[in-house]
Amino acid sequence: MNVFGKKGFKKWMPLLGLLPAIIVFGAFKIYPSIMTFIYSFTQYSGIPGTPLHFVGLENYKMAFSGFSGIGKAIRITIIFALCVTLLQNALGLFAALVFNKKTRGTVFYRSLVFLPVVLSVVVTGLIWSLLFSPIGGPIEPIWKAVFGHSSSFFGSNTLALPLVIFVQIWQNAGFTMVVYLAGLQTVPTELLESAQLDGASRWQRFRHVLFPMIAASTTVNVLLCVIGALGTYDLIYVLTGGQFGTMTLGMDMFNTAFGGSNQLGYGSMIQMLQFALVLIVTLILQWYLRRREVEL
């Protein structure tokens, strides 16, 4: 019960305080989410005064008719998310393990890896566009010396996607590392010492003591990584604009709706497909990772 007053005007004060948050939340979070679903069954330009034209399942039919790029976009999204999740977790865990020791310098190393987490995607995107610039970028001559031919990097159909994956990991690995570090710090040192005394090798200690002990961190990191990667488009927007085989579902949604053609209905349908993909993958992963946590 409200201790500040049980009747009259005073009773309603908590509600009065809650109201702005509820209004903002309802108007700018819940309502747009529901409308995405409704828009996905329409043809709509979004220009004020133009009608919302219902077309039933037409957008979905078109997407799976074979003439659209949706199949390819789904494939690219899955490749992107899979690579980012695996590599970012491997790198984050590796960095956490190495920098977990309290030696001089580790704080400095950790800070450097974490730094890009606080930078904007424009900044990260432009830094790597500069480094991989075919004209005057420092990587181009090295590349030429090693492979014997030039490349246009972010403008190359074969390299653009791997490079975008790399930059995404570069930007976010520090965060993954910090979550793993927090997990590692909960592992009692006595446990590792006794394992060492029992003759467990470095790998065995990691595989059978450390890794099971940080299962909760792994779950969090994998889920955040997958959900983030399946929806990413801001970094891709800066690096390639979705060209050269980097058109993920998120990027396709953004381009379809805001790239000049104003197809808000079709764009909403892509957003719903992306949502369905996130939902399916998350449910499967959640089930698998939780079960794994219990078993370990």
């Binding site: 979070k29 747009p32 989410s33 409308m35 995405t36 979004g46 929806g231 949604m253 764009g267």
Partner: peptide, 19 residues
């Protein structure tokens, strides 16, 4: 519960734009 559910809703960028 409403706030928790909202974490699992589709993105609403497009309708937010028309809104």
């Amino acid at each position: 519960l409403l706030f928790v559910i909202s974490l699992f809703l589709p993105g609403g960028l497009i309708p937010l734009f028309t809104e």
